[in-house]
Amino acid sequence: MAGWADQVSFLADIDAEARQALQVLKPMHVPQRTTLFRPGDAAQSFVILLSGRIGVYLTGRNGRELLLYSVTPGETCVQTTLGVLGGAPYSGEAVAESDLVAVMVPPAVFERLMASSPAFRAFVFKAFADRLGDLMFVLEQVAFVKVEQRLAHALLERADEEGRVALTHQELAAVIGTAREVVSRRLEALSSKGVVENERGQIRLVDRGELSRMARVGEG
């Protein structure tokens, strides 16, 4: 009978021995908005995400949050990898942005697989490199891209099929790296132009074409 490790495409290249070692670990269900770790916590396991989305945030001394990166199936968390490999404590906070299904790999199993399975090791380091790329993208966006462009891109990326974005103004501010008041003003301006509609606890996209144009401004 096929187990979870046989059903996820991003582990297709790992060897049979590594697959067997992972297969005995039971997937866990984690509810939306659960805090997975906080600054100062020690890494307890290496997370393999099977479904859902995790957001990893950094909080500044002024209390403002910034989304460092998101983790989706097939991706890994930089801070967790560093914590399990080198014992570094978490400096950010991870929150389940949706209901999750994940496998928690104990440090002993993770270290054994890293030492014995080149394919598993390649998966970990490739995913790690991808997350570093995301961090560089965040730095570039915050440093060089206008708030309006970042907001348009975030709205398009987070909208469901019906064009609704189930995020508060504070949560959107964390995603694009600015203050809640700035997001509120920009959304009010977009609403007055008929581009979005501000609804209770969410934003509805009215003119995706205009948001796409705004998201592309300055590219190339």
Rank of each mutant, 00 (worst) to 15 (best):
M1R: 12
A115T: 13
I54Y: 02
A96R: 10
G83F: 04
E148D: 15
L68P: 02
M28T: 13
R200A: 11
R208M: 06
S184V: 11
F110S: 05
A18S: 13
F128W: 11
T76P: 01
A215D: 06
F137M: 11
V101E: 12
V30S: 05
A143Q: 13
F144H: 14
A159E: 11
S51E: 08
D207P: 14
E140I: 10
L68R: 08
V101G: 00
Q23E: 14
D207V: 13
V24P: 02
G163P: 12
F10H: 13
E97I: 00
V101K: 06
S117H: 07
D130K: 15
T34G: 01
A154M: 04
L49I: 11
P31G: 00
I176T: 03
A18W: 01
L151E: 12
Q44F: 02
A102V: 14
V47E: 11
L50A: 04
G3T: 13
G55I: 06
V47N: 04
E140W: 14
A122V: 07
I176Y: 04
F10I: 07
P118V: 11
V145I: 12
T80D: 05
R53D: 01
Q149E: 05
R112T: 12
A189Q: 15
A189L: 15
M214C: 04
L155W: 06
D41L: 05
G3L: 06
A166Y: 11
Q170N: 06
T80L: 12
R213I: 02
A42M: 09
L205P: 09
S192T: 14
L67Q: 07
L100Y: 06
F128Y: 15
G55C: 07
T80R: 09
S191I: 00
T59D: 01
V105E: 03
D130T: 13
A152R: 07
L132S: 03
T80K: 03
K126G: 01
R158Y: 08
T72G: 02
K193G: 01
I14T: 09
L156G: 08
D207F: 11
F46C: 07
A43R: 09
A122E: 15
T178W: 05
R164H: 08
P31Q: 06
D99M: 00
L156S: 07
G40T: 05
E171F: 01
E171M: 04
F110H: 11
L22M: 11
V8I: 15
I48M: 13
V183M: 10
P31W: 00
Q44N: 12
Q44P: 02
G63H: 11
A96T: 11
